[in-house]
Design a protein around this nucleic acid. Structure first.
Lengths: 259, 259
DNA sequence: CGGGGAATTGAATACGTTCAAAGGCCGTGG
DNA sequence: CCACGGCCTTTGAACGTATTCAATTCCCCG
């Protein structure tokens, strides 16, 4: 589970041809120690009883998902929780008027599907932004184990708490009063902070998703996002190389993100 | 616990003097059946063991909180979960730049403090908008019971799930692309829907909080909120009577809220 | 090499904000 | 009981920012 196997899930960039930007490193799987599911995975081997090892064996690890494919759809039955080991997933939902709303992105080491723990059907759609891979844990297995291992149950609750904290952060960062510049700056910093330590430097931020999706998520128009990024570049706050952004002046971005 | 005792927690309006608006009904306590804590309260009497009845006895019920008082503050230790039985509470947080951000309002029958289940310190400040009352349940008691009653633990998880759903709803309603009118319309409808059945009609929506707080929550200026409400009134979508709003044309509001 | 979609840039418009002023409500004090 | 003062709310007009619509450029891929 700790081994690292190289693949090339990043379909937007062809390293051989790309004239802009270094090859991305999202292709590397995140180490289990850096994964949000680790506290859930870890207790399993500790149990000596039958069901635990059974689940350990049954867990699908680093299951590849091609770019554009759905991990689950709005309204579909909830059966698993996922941990991203490589790539990037996009969460979105349909609004009452039919318009499409990106509610978040998930990076390697983060969870997907935990937003509906306890629910029967999915509230969102999860789509692979680029070629990705996930570990799958069946929810019925989780529930079965929870009844035997209190540690496990605590881990699950803690996952939910994290979810809520993330959402609250999102609300206060991107919603109120925030202008385009502070939203974009906050987004860049947030993605940078969420990158796990296995990736080289935090200043190098890959953005595999489309500009439209980022803009949609931030409640901006693609044009506004583009203009803002260009402005940041002119001010030497960032350096754009295609789908990768280098954070040049983190302090400057931080002060902008705080208005 | 099912009895209803009248009080007068609504300090903004003096029924004897008020020239605008009928007397508010938030003073009525919500019935236990309509309370979000009910699934947590209910299992308790079912247990025959000692600890359960102990907690039932120890729970502080309908504890009054004067307008302006804090239920808890940012950074303070987490020790209880609360259910509002009357009045209204405001959740807020300090942003990095020091500015103040309202993250939500909680109405009778809803929970407060559940956003930090599993955490040690509060992430928000909870302040009574008007004279209010809450039921208090100690978290250590909850944890103690959870270990014995799986039903209980399930109820707690379901509370967290609800939290997340509310937050997601908030994000998609108030954040992205939404203009002032759709935000305000969505807010009015949301508050109306959240009013429990004990209150007469859902079209009569009391807004005990200040306009500034509503505007802050929606990411608008108080002036913009005021203008929007005035416009709605001119269009006969609503009727304002001080701190109470009557929803005249719900369908119209709904279509505006959906852009 | 050429087609197509995404991303960027430009100019005009629309919307929310800002600053300023007036009005209304409420508590206080005469 | 009425008058005063403060605060919240509402209204008005000028401004700034994000959006819109349109055109161009850049990449990716056949």
């Amino acid at each position: 589970m700790k081994d690292r196997q190289a693949s090339e899930p990043f379909n937007e960039v062809h390293p051989s041809k790309s004239t802009r930007g270094a090859p991305h490193t999202l292709s590397e799987h995140v180490a289990c120690e850096d994964c949000a599911l680790d506290p859930v995975c870890k207790p399993i081997p500790m149990g000596t009883a039958e069901p635990f090892s059974y689940i350990l064996d049954n867990m699908k690890r680093r299951d590849p998902i091609a770019a554009g494919q759905l991990l689950y759809n709005e309204g579909s039955d909830v059966s698993e929780v996922y941990a991203i080991t490589s790539g990037c997933l996009k969460l979105s939902t349909q609004r009452p008027n039919g318009s499409y709303q990106v509610t978040g992105f998930r990076m390697p080491g983060e969870l997907v599907g935990d937003e509906v723990l306890g629910l029967k059907t999915h509230r969102f759609r999860a789509e692979a932004v680029c070629d990705s891979a996930v570990c799958r844990i069946s929810i019925s297995d989780i529930e079965a184990i929870s009844q035997h291992l209190p540690l496990f149950q605590q881990a699950v609750l803690s996952l939910m708490t994290n979810q809520c904290r993330q959402l609250h952060l999102q609300l206060s960062s991107y919603v109120a009063h925030a202008n385009a510049e502070s939203k974009v700056a906050a987004f860049l910093l947030n993605v940078s902070e969420r990158r796990v330590s296995t990736e080289q430097t935090t200043s190098r931020v890959p953005l595999p998703m489309s500009r439209s999706d980022i803009a949609n998520f931030l409640g901006l128009r693609p044009e506004t996002l583009s203009r803002t990024l260009s402005k940041f570049q002119k001010q030497s706050l960032i350096e754009m190389q295609g789908k990768t952004v280098h954070l040049v002046n983190v302090a400057g971005l931080k002060s902008i993100s705080e208005q």
